[in-house]
């Protein structure tokens, strides 16, 4: 079996935050490009915002992936969850940052992302 098949290629990062901004970063490493393959997010908030935005930017803050998640609201809180799956290759040596935006008052956010190096 080739050595490259000995290890799983993808690195998964996960984070959770209450009443604070949340982002995940695959670090900038010279000679390495990250290929982003999966993003999963969920948000429970006390406001009535109906659209949650998630973006995955390179080191120069250029958005390569942006998607919105509709939030289901009730009288006192809203919940939203969404995911993205694909294959986007970021520039050589660039960090990749995945962040959630568009929420004025956060209660709980969870974010999970997977990328592999090439």
């Amino acid at each position: 079996m080739p050595a490259s098949d000995e290890f799983p290629r993808g690195l998964s990062l996960a984070g959770q935050a209450s009443n604070a901004a949340l982002s995940l970063t695959f670090p900038a490493i010279p000679g390495i490009s990250w290929v982003l393959t999966d993003i999963d997010l969920s948000v429970t908030s006390t406001n009535t915002t109906t659209e949650i935005m998630c973006s995955a930017t390179d080191q120069a803050s250029r958005p390569y992936i942006t998607f919105g998640v509709s939030e289901a609201t009730s009288t006192s809180y809203g919940t939203g969850a969404g995911s993205w799956a694909g294959k986007v290759c970021y520039p050589l040596g660039s960090a990749v940052t995945i962040s959630i935006g568009g929420i004025a008052a956060n209660v709980l956010q969870t974010l999970h992302a997977t990328a592999y190096p090439i």
Partner: peptide, 8 residues
């Protein structure tokens, strides 16, 4: 107790 991923 570690896990390894990545590329060589």
């Amino acid at each position: 107790n570690v896990a390894v991923y990545g590329k060589l």
